[in-house]
């Protein structure tokens, strides 16, 4: 069991080495990169906006409900909501959401190409399939996910604002005051850095699980689940490590 785990980790790094070799043709790489960025970015926008608005709304409501003491300043609600949204909810929850959304798609796509021998066909042509197929996906998600994270933060804050406006749990003036109180750009940099690292983990791990499939459709389903579980697990552990290092 332990031995098998170590072998898998070794295979993963060998796979990474194959992925990060020079593309055979840069024009083809950029064409694929743009295509992937389009499908990942535009394709995830709807779900990201819905989830973010809901997250921002609920975290604001919860905070407002918990803090009902007259000697806690009223900007606290906005401040707490902003901090949770920027530091944890958007980078981490969003990344986990994208694992299910983008990661599983990557595993399924690469895995089905493996099962139907399309990867073998690339290899026989003298093309490095790992680099040709995976590098554009990894690059695209490392570029797109942080942008989605910024959007997600914006949507979540808007969601919080709307909730305050509709329910009137605190005054909108106090909420905005809290949102802007003691704002540090470093927090956003922290969030974006985390998302970038998580994007790398998500895209490489899910490609890896698709790439190494042996067998048929049954294996494909299994690999897809495994890819999601393993990337989520690594993301959660890295989250603790990065939080320790950066804050």
């Amino acid at each position: 069991m332990l031995f098998k785990g170590l072998v898998t980790i070794g295979d993963y790094f060998i796979f990474l080495k194959k992925v990060f070799s020079k593309p055979a043709k840069w024009s083809v790489f950029f064409k694929k990169l743009v295509f992937e960025m389009d499908t990942m970015g535009i394709g995830s926008m709807l779900i990201v906006s819905i989830v973010s608005v809901a997250m921002g709304s609920v975290i604001t409501l919860q905070t407002a409900l918990q803090i009902e003491s007259s000697w806690i300043p009223s900007w606290t609600v906005g401040f707490t909501a902003r901090t949770s949204i920027v530091m944890e909810l958007c980078p981490t929850i969003l990344s986990l959401l994208l694992v299910g959304n983008i990661g599983s798609r990557i595993t399924a796509e690469i895995g089905s190409m493996r099962v139907t021998e399309q990867i073998d066909a690339l290899e026989v042509m003298g093309i490095n399939p790992a680099s040709y197929l995976v590098l554009p996906k990894v690059s695209a998600s490392v570029i797109v996910n942080p942008v989605l994270c910024i959007f997600s933060i914006a949507f979540a804050l808007v969601g919080g604002f709307l909730t305050v406006w509709i329910t009137d749990c605190v005054s909108t003036y106090n909420y905005i005051d809290g949102l802007t109180y003691c704002f540090r750009v470093y927090d956003v940099i922290y969030a974006v850095t985390k998302t970038t690292i998580f994007a790398f983990v998500m895209s490489t791990v899910s490609s890896f699980y698709g790439y190494k499939i042996e067998g048929g459709a049954l294996e494909l389903g299994k690999a897809s689940t495994q890819g999601i579980i393993v990337s989520s697990f690594i993301i959660l552990i890295l989250n603790v490590v990065i939080t320790n290092l950066m804050l």
């Binding site: 190409m113 139907t116 021998e117 399309q118 073998d120 066909a121 026989v124």
Partner: peptide
């Protein structure tokens, strides 16, 4: 090479 299952890029 032509594979037994064609292996066209779908």
């Amino acid at each position: 090479m032509v594979f037994q299952g064609s292996a066209l890029f779908d």
